[in-house]
Amino acid sequence: MSSLILILVTGVGLGALYFLVASGLSLIYGLMHVLNFAHGAFLTAGAYAAWVATAHLSGLGGWSFPVAVLVGMVVGALIGALVEFFLIRPLYRRHIEQVLVTVGLGLMGVALFTGIWGPDPLPFPRPAWTTGTTDIGGAAIPNDRFLLIGAAGVLLIGLVLLLRYTRIGLIIRAGVENRSMVQALGIDVRRTFTLVFAIGGAAAALGGVLGSVYLGSVSPGQGTALLIYAFIVVVIGGFGSIGGTALAALVVGLVQQLANYYLYSGIGDVSVVLLLAAVLLVRPAGLTGKTA
């Protein structure tokens, strides 16, 4: 029983990490129809920024980690906004070029991080409390799982509140449905695009920092590895739907962990791909019915 609890909580934690990465990806595609293959670079940049910040913030004691997380998110948001403004904005309606630019940017990011910090994973300075465990039903659950789950919960609630109760959220929801009509109502949808890229970048960076806590290290290819799962989550959940993305992330995390434990170690990745295939066969538009 304790093993099952550990597997379930770890699966939910992994799903939370996927949600952190995938939420921005889903919003960006839903609103702008941009497949952002550079999203992994936002994640890695945020993780390295937090890693660098932590080294310079040791004087803050217990505050060094939250401040480093904030630094990572700000860096992710800035990179997201700058990429949208300078590289994506000139290419709206030119989808092939967008894909080429974001793929190139993603590859460039990995090369850049490798050039600066080397190809090997660097130990990420984790707060002491994240390395401990909490007993639930006899299972010793690593605390970093709760950190991931809590952060994803806060992000989900924050995004839902933003989308439901603010004018910018109203514009995003309307833009996901019909971007041209939003412009035809006198709204500068390009500013919303920049904001959504910034939100996506910040969320990815948060995922990068907390993913580094989970893995215990930061490496140049970290974002690329997580991006694959993020895309799977977004497709399963339905593009542009935050609720669908959250549900899909949870399902993918749990399936991966359960398959790894109960079937065969390493088969979790295969099971996720099989899950994707099954969802596409049964519900091609994803769980929430929004097509790519």
């Binding site: 004018r167 109203l170 514009i171 929801r173 309307a174 449905e177 019909n178 009509m181 939003v182 109502l185 006198g186 709204i187």
Partner: peptide, 13 residues
């Protein structure tokens, strides 16, 4: 905007 309420459609304008 089909997924928005009448009120929200008008608020957008």
């Amino acid at each position: 905007f089909a997924s928005l309420t009448v009120e929200e459609n008008l608020e957008l304008a």
